[in-house]
Simulated assay, not measured.
Amino acid sequence: MTKLASQFGRALSAELGPDFSTHQVSNDVVFRHLNPSLLSDCFSWGGLNEILSRGSAVPADFFLCAQGKRLPEHQYKTSLDGHQVFDLPRVFALMRSGATLIIDSLDRIHPGVRAATDDVMRITGETAACNLFVTFDDAQAFDSHFDEVDTFVVQLLGTKHWKVHGPSEEFPLPEYGDSDPVNCPETTLFEKTLVPGDVIHVPRGWWHTVRGGGETSLHLTFTFTRRTGYDWLRWAARQALSRAEIRESLDRNASPEAHQAQLERIIEAFLGEAKDLPLSDFFAAERRAAGGRGLASLPWDVSRARPSEHDVVELAPVLPPLIHVAGDQVIITAKDQEFALPAQHHPTIEALITARRLTVAQLAAQAGTPVAAVSALVVALLQCQLVTVSHAGPTHQDIQ
């Protein structure tokens, strides 16, 4: 695994240990406690105030919930110069009345949360996102419910009371599952008031009841979506497109006997292809398609000037790309594309994938390559959107 980006990610990975991914993920409630000071890079009141002061959280999704329902936007937004913006006095009044503020996909707009979310993807190997919940007193945003994704819940500030009840059905999906609160099991498997630094893993489909702990609460929920048999079936169906029986038009007006015959041909063709499609091929295809967030690296994106030895280069794909040497070339596979570079750059690329983020001079030293050659390589990788470049200086991340 490439080096983790955030203090939170490194601490969480160390606390979870190898047993989590082997035995506990999706199967058990897992409780851990991190040093609250390690969460300072993730989010704070200052980060929230900055978002609210902008008047918009786009492209993240900002909303308020109370008593299990999402409140209509007209209750807390107003029009300004043709744009919908937060009406802060109304937002605060609704929160004083018991509404919970929620920002879905906070990782899209906040660098510290983005770094932590990317680390969750590196730890789990799955697609992840992060949502913020802000609660005062003992407010409750949702009735008892389950999520169709696995989660890490991280208490940043204040307290939040959690009850986890377990599942009422196996492996629900957004496309399949009954989340009516009447189905919530009565048994409580885990109950705790979370304090800053507390982290719990709640498996997909496990019901939970959550309310404020009687004071202010900020918590982040990192969701990660594990692949299922349904995902494999959709992928396998695409692989079977080479078979004419799969591409053939369905005969709407045929007889029942003809319909059955065509159905049997389709099933036989699909099974003929699917039996030779192991799960390892599916995971390998996902890895080849993995990319990054498409972050900007101005001025280099436009000027294409070579970065200096003090500038910082960072691997853009969240998961490390696949690389192999073929003759006199090193091939990098990411975003469903292959990028061929002279094989002499192999040590530099390996060093970058391992370290993930370092200065040009540090990369050159680790690869045993001249700074000028590394700087030229970075320009080529930047054009392929495989790295980002930034000026050296203090950031929310370490440059170790």
Rank of each mutant, 00 (worst) to 15 (best):
P347Y: 02
K3V: 05
P72S: 10
Q362N: 11
D311S: 13
G68K: 01
W300F: 11
L341Y: 12
S144M: 00
F190C: 07
L80Y: 12
Q140F: 04
S56G: 01
I266R: 02
P167F: 11
W232N: 02
G294F: 02
A258D: 15
L12D: 00
A351D: 08
R252C: 06
A14I: 05
L315N: 06
K335W: 07
I323N: 00
L233S: 05
W162N: 10
A373N: 09
R32T: 04
L48E: 12
L295F: 00
E309F: 03
Q397G: 03
A254Q: 08
Q337M: 10
V360I: 15
A274S: 14
D104I: 01
S44T: 13
L277D: 12
R304G: 07
E126D: 15
Q84G: 06
R306Y: 07
A141G: 13
H161G: 01
A11D: 13
L80R: 13
R122D: 13
V25F: 00
Q260E: 13
V149N: 06
S21C: 02
E245K: 02
T193F: 06
P320A: 15
L194I: 11
H74Q: 15
R96F: 02
S6P: 04
R54E: 13
I246R: 12
F92R: 04
R247F: 03
S280V: 09
